[in-house]
């Protein structure tokens, strides 16, 4: 099924108009509710299509968890695999998390103290 991207963009813009520029009223509310339903439907479709949780043949069950589960103690020295992943295999991400905490507090403090 071919749909013109022009049409798609046009409808997008119409939506933008509805949500950003249309004054509050029944039309706006009705359209919003309608769209929420459509989006909800789309999300439900997506979720229903996802691989079965915990099934053996899920794509997520590949070489990555295999190594994590099988060789983490000997490779990292940590018996707890979760800790092995977050502080060794993906320690860089954890550094990022630490920085997120830091930046959050810095941003909050700079706001509070700037007064």
């Amino acid at each position: 099924m071919e749909v013109n991207p022009y049409v798609a963009v046009g409808i997008l813009l119409l939506m933008a108009y509805v949500f950003f520029y249309l004054p509050a009223g029944y039309i706006r509310h009705v359209l919003i509710v309608l769209l929420v339903f459509i989006i909800g439907y789309a999300l439900v479709m997506t979720v229903s299509e996802m691989p079965t949780f915990g099934a053996v043949d899920t794509p997520a069950h590949n070489v990555v968890p295999e190594r994590y589960l099988g060789r983490a103690p000997e490779e990292t020295g940590a018996v707890n695999v979760v800790t092995a992943i977050i502080t060794d295999y993906r320690a860089f991400d954890t550094l990022g998390e630490v920085v997120v905490l830091f930046v959050a507090i810095v941003a909050a403090l700079s706001n509070l103290k700037a007064r």
């Binding site: 070489v63 190594r67 295999y89 993906r90 320690a91 860089f92 991400d93």
Partner: peptide, 10 residues
Amino acid sequence: VGGWPPPWGV
């Protein structure tokens, strides 16, 4: 990063 090859490390 961390010396781990791609699918496992960053």
